[in-house]
């Protein structure tokens, strides 16, 4: 440590310092930022080697790779922040192939003037999320853009993982008769974000459901290797994700509204803003489609995991040339559940 101290005579002023262009210039300031912030917190052998890449052995099997850019406002929200979100989001994308995630990379785009204290908070949260998940961040990149050309911080993460043998999960494998399961209540993330946006102020105890689902997926895949489809209903919500799967598989779907778990606070916030929980984003839920014979076993496995405690069977895959997702409403009628159109904007009428 004493050698490092000499390289950077003054430690980063995290408490009141801000990002400036030198932090992305490739010079000493950047090296210091990487060392005192990123390496310190992400702390692992591969990162400490200080190469521009990470080299590692991979187990035999099919390799999965996924990347996700994270932009969110506000950066800190009830139940999480952009740091933990950027870890969970990519781990979930890898896990939805039934894969066990191995490593992550991260790319930061920082805006000039961004407070170092906020950056440290984000990095600590990100490191904690990676540690909880057991998947290290082994390589990364940092760029700085001029003030006004970013929104504080953007984080892109990439993950790699290995699919166990005999697992073939894909969005085009839904077949008529298959059961549709969801791992828990929908809309929590979107409502938590909206509640913290300045112009929509309402108070609620709802927190984002942001979580890494790969351990839940691992136990599901172990119980039923032949899961047909897995997908996390993020932007566009449950409705849009089911429509994607229906289109990909060339099938229709029949849902039962009363079976879909929605928290009272999410329902209430949606009533207030004229929104539909089916279209609100989730960051810690998955949709699973499987053969009807496997549904109960999967449901039991999911409910045994804290992240799937409120799992439910919400409908079935049906034949439909139009690929409609339909729903029996709680009121006793039926309706189409269409793709999300444009952006979910609060309505007055």
């Amino acid at each position: 440590m004493s050698v490092k101290a000499k390289r950077f005579p003054q430690r980063l002023n995290i408490r009141s310092g801000t990002i400036d262009m030198t932090h992305g210039s490739g010079g000493r300031a950047m090296a210091q930022l990487i060392e005192e912030l990123f390496v310190t917190h992400f702390d692992n052998d591969l990162l400490r080697q200080a190469n521009d890449q990470a080299a590692f052995d991979v187990p035999a099997g099919r390799l999965v790779m996924s990347t996700d850019g994270h932009v969110i406002s506000p950066l800190f929200f009830p139940g999480g922040d952009i740091g933990s979100l950027s870890v969970h989001g990519t781990l979930n994308d890898v896990a939805m192939a039934g894969a066990r995630p191995l490593y992550l990379s991260s790319g930061f785009i920082l805006e000039e003037g961004f407070p170092l204290a906020d950056l440290e908070r984000i990095v600590i949260s990100m490191a904690a999320a990676a540690k909880r998940a057991g998947v290290p961040v082994v390589t990364g990149d940092t760029k700085v853009v001029e003030r006004g050309k970013g929104d504080g911080v953007f984080i892109t993460t990439t993950g790699v993982g290995i699919v166990p043998k005999g697992v073939n999960i894909s969005g085009d494998r839904a077949r008529p008769g298959d059961a549709i399961l969801v791992s828990g209540s929908i809309g929590d993330h979107g409502v938590a974000i909206m509640s913290s946006r300045e112009n929509l102020t309402f108070e609620t105890t709802i927190e984002s459901d942001s979580a890494a689902l790969h351990k839940l997926v691992a136990s599901m895949v172990e119980a039923v290797p032949d899961i047909h489809c897995l997908r996390d209903p993020t932007r566009g919500g449950l409705a849009t994700t089911l429509n994607e799967l229906a289109l990909q598989s060339g099938v229709g779907m029949q849902l039962t509204e009363d079976a879909i778990p929605v928290r009272p606070a999410v329902s209430a916030a949606c009533e207030l803003l004229g929104l539909d929980p089916l279209y609100i984003a989730n960051e810690g839920k998955l949709i699973c489609i499987c053969a009807p014979a496997d549904a109960q076993r999967l449901l039991a496995v999911m409910r045994a995991d804290p992240l799937g405690a409120e799992a439910a069977i919400i409908g079935e895959v049906i034949e439909d040339a139009h690929g409609f997702v339909r729903m029996q409403t709680g009121f006793g009628g039926s309706r189409v559940v269409d793709w999300l159109t444009g952006e979910q904007l609060p309505r007055i009428c």
């Binding site: 102020t201 309402f202 108070e203 609620t204 709802i206 606070a265 209430a268 207030l272």
Partner: peptide
């Protein structure tokens, strides 16, 4: 209060 949600 609208259920668990509060608004000014």
């Amino acid at each position: 209060a609208l259920g668990p949600v509060r608004k000014r």
